[in-house]
Amino acid sequence: MTIETKSSSAPVAKARSRRLPPEFNILVVLIGMALMFELLGWVFEGQSFLFNILRLRIMILQVSVIGIIAIGVTQVIITSGIDLSSGSIVGASAMVAASLAQSSDYTHAIYPGLTNLPAIVPILVGIVVGGLGGFINGGLIAWTGIPPFIATLGTYVSIRGFAKWYTHGNPVSFLTPQFNVIGSGIVPVFIFLICAAIFHVVLGYTRYGKFTYAIGANRQAARVSGINVQRHLIYVYVIAGLLSGLAGIVTAARAQSGQSGMGVGYELQAIAAAVIGGTSLTGGVGRIWGTVFGTLILGVVTSGFTFLNINDYLQEMVLGGIIVGAVIVDQYRQARRAKA
């Protein structure tokens, strides 16, 4: 807002161009990073980083699962909550879905009577498992009033335990080709982008979305405005759980097996993607496209470091710095905006 715009003859047009969507900055960072690796690629490796379809494909594939989870986590964080259980839900959903997706070629199936089921069965059951996990999170938070960090820390441990208990730690293999389709090729990327598009619309244009922002911005005011805060929080955590469940199915289909250790550490990567994408941990602020770009930044960095043959451990060290740096920059931007 400047004095000039006020006196301008076309304030509306000015107002629009002035307000670039907040995720524009994140896109700039994403492009900047990609270009940086492109340049480093020519300098050190003598080849292009970006103009390599295979590399791009692997890069996006790698982060699609994180992206699907991050879409749900973004919504949770907008309500000023947190979800630590998503990685564990991935494991549980992968196990349960895989156990119902086994082919009859395998003689030691978990449920010998339930082999060769149509793929839709394990898919739906896997998603429902995620939804149940989310419901437990939401219920604990809404009805007992314990902090989301504690509630989901508990389910983080318990749901991982469930995933291990389900087959006593054994992997579940020999899945039907039909089921494996959802993890093959670039199908996971499509699933990620479709979910992103859906929830972009949901957050921006539905009552659910408006309530989500309102609760995060001021829970007490939301309550007095007639919003059923408890019920809404349950919805948000269930949706986050459903998305984690979906991510679990994709993970199992990609690996063509279910393993109880699947998704370890995903919850933190998903939170990182959301935070890099401009979602504020204090609530009320955040957009899905920001999270999508945040996810892609994670992908570009990981892929770029591998491309430059940088040591894995060093990669992790730098990644941590990027997460913290993103929040510092964002906080600075927020402060400037609040003053304006």
Partner: peptide, 21 residues
Amino acid sequence: KETGCFLILDVQQNMQVAVLG
């Protein structure tokens, strides 16, 4: 500030919240 406004949201969001039902 405590129970009325959504301080970080805009005028539009603050005004419309009670009619979203």
